Simulated scan of single mutants.
Amino acid sequence: MDQRISFITLAVADLETSRAFYVDGLGWRPELHEPGEVLMLAAGERLVFSLWQREQFEAEVGAIAAGPGVAPFTLSHNVATEAEVDAVLAEARAAGADPVEAAQRREWGGWTGYFADPDGHRWEIATNPGPIGQRVLP
Rank of each mutant, 00 (worst) to 15 (best):
A11F: 07
A71W: 14
A94F: 04
T74H: 15
E55F: 12
E84D: 15
D117R: 15
A83N: 11
E16P: 02
R122W: 08
F7I: 12
G27L: 02
R4W: 06
V70K: 13
I8L: 11
R29A: 07
Y114C: 05
L26D: 04
E31M: 10
A13M: 04
S50N: 13
G62Y: 09
R4K: 14
R93C: 09
P72G: 09
S6K: 10
A43C: 10
L15A: 07
F57N: 08
L51V: 11
P131Y: 04
A116D: 00
P68L: 02
V85F: 07
F7Y: 14
A103E: 09
Y114P: 00
A94Q: 12
A66T: 15
A94I: 06
R46N: 15
A87T: 14
V70C: 02
L10W: 12
F73A: 10
Y22K: 00
G113V: 02
E34G: 00
V61S: 07
F57R: 12
L39G: 03
E60I: 14
V100K: 01
R122S: 01
G44D: 10
T112L: 02
F21P: 03
I132Q: 11
G113A: 01
G96H: 04
N78Y: 12
A94L: 08
T17E: 11
I64A: 06
V38M: 11
E101S: 14
R29W: 01
V88A: 05
G62T: 10
W52L: 11
R19F: 12
G62V: 11
T74V: 15
P72T: 10
H33N: 07
D98N: 12
A65V: 13
R122G: 00
V12I: 02
A43N: 09
E58Y: 08
E124L: 05
